[in-house]
Write a protein that binds this DNA or RNA. Sequence first.
DNA 1: GACGATTACTTTAGAATTAAAGTATCGAAC
DNA 2: GTTCGATACTTTAATTCTAAAGTAATCGTC
Lengths: 174, 174
Amino acid sequence: MSAPEEQDPLWIDAETTVAARPADHKMELRLWLRLFSCSRLIENDIRRHLNAEFEFSLPRFDILAQLDRADEGLVLGEVSKRLMVSAGNITSLVEGLVKSGHITRTTSSGDRRAQVIRLTDKGRREFRRMAKVHSDWIAAYFERLPQKDIERLMDLLATLKDSTRQSIIARQEP
Amino acid sequence: MSAPEEQDPLWIDAETTVAARPADHKMELRLWLRLFSCSRLIENDIRRHLNAEFEFSLPRFDILAQLDRADEGLVLGEVSKRLMVSAGNITSLVEGLVKSGHITRTTSSGDRRAQVIRLTDKGRREFRRMAKVHSDWIAAYFERLPQKDIERLMDLLATLKDSTRQSIIARQEP
DNA sequence: GACGATTACTTTAGAATTAAAGTATCGAAC
DNA sequence: GTTCGATACTTTAATTCTAAAGTAATCGTC
């Protein structure tokens, strides 16, 4: 048995359907939808596997991942910025991770407003166990892209990120 | 007054911080995080503007966008697939859009399980009003990319999407 | 050292999201 | 035409997420 060939509009999604549309910034719109659908496709798959194989949620994993790279821990605001989610969201996720014993949380010595979080031994151990498999999943998504394309994508996305940021900043200033 | 230059780790985020990590599939991981952060950056900005300028939520806008391209309406399952969100989520969003008069919802004549949704006149009018500005925002994100880069990105992301789908399908089969 | 503005976080209320279980209909095989 | 599996959607429970308002600490300036 192989792929579901009988499934009628196989792999038709938001990105695909705009193709024939006669519009203004048609190309840019298509590019955005394609970018978004790639991202969503991968994100959903990671979420599914993380849940299925480790009973761990993606947002919780993401916080551990940030902390694994930060030896001195991170203040909540940093986590919020890096993951690009709202500050209020971080508060409750952190609460959960403290309760489950994956991280510790202490008030910063220099600034009593700031809360520093760090991985516990358990947190680091469990994160690394998950990260090992996680990184294999990721590699698989890109498996069929030649190394040259990967590098080219890296460059182009870096440029896009800069361009986007500039355009966001520019709009905020009159 | 210009951009916040004193802000210390300006534009440090999840994607940036993995750069120096000595790891397995380092390149692929970086690429995924870069892709994700581009997508997130744009998505968040669109959401912000849609809320601020039209008091309309992004998921609601996304459904209208699908319907604007589908003259005969769409069954809920199609919407769910195209937007890549769960079926249960669509149910309540559709409920809200019917209540606010943007769409209609009828049982499919051929299949009494299926629900077909369509734009109302009001829905189409309001969507198009928003879409006009929306498309300008999108164009601005890509403003600083040469046309050639845009085309290259389109190609590479198409390849990536295929590669990802194949890898997802492949894992589901023994 | 006392404002006032800013920053770091929390709280609140509500929307969006998912997974999983449930309901109804369809279609195909018998 | 009955039955059984698949399909289309809904419901439920829980998590994630946001915007906006609130609290407390810090910083700069006078």
